[in-house]
């Protein structure tokens, strides 16, 4: 498509903004009717968390860009080493994330990236 004139902005507003904020607004309407101590909220929490977990899994298993060419075992290994460090030091996110990224960087370096 051409990137000139107002059309791209209309395209972004309809296919981008309406397509995302529609769901956010639906979430407000639904969330407003849910009692904080209800079983329904427990289910909504579980579904929301599982959706985000699925996004995480997809980023790890099917990354885009440079990591597309990296082996799956390296990415899973980096997550596993990071998780081990995270639990070993009493669940400190910075340690877990740092260890995981360092493992990935080392692996990429050794594989000649």
């Amino acid at each position: 498509m051409s990137f000139d004139g107002p059309w791209p902005y209309i395209y972004i507003a309809i296919a981008g903004w309406l397509a995302t904020d529609f769901w956010r607004w639906s979430g407000v309407i639904a969330g407003n009717r849910i009692d904080e101590k209800s079983e329904v909220l427990n289910w909504v929490r579980a579904v929301a968390t599982a959706l985000v977990a699925a996004v995480i899994a997809k980023l790890i298993v099917y990354p885009t860009g440079v990591l597309e060419a990296s082996p799956l075992w390296l990415r899973l290994g980096a997550v596993a080493v990071g998780a081990a460090a995270f639990f070993a030091v009493g669940r400190r996110p910075v340690i877990g994330i740092g260890t995981s990224i360092a493992t990935l960087a080392l692996g990429l370096h050794m594989l000649g990236f």
């Binding site: 995302t20 639904a30 969330g31 929490r45």
Partner: peptide, 19 residues
């Protein structure tokens, strides 16, 4: 395509609002 990728916003917002 964007709508399908964004359905997750609904339960995310619905879980946040009562909080």
């Amino acid at each position: 395509a964007v709508t399908l990728s964004s359905v997750r916003m609904m339960p995310m917002v619905a879980a946040l609002i009562p909080e």
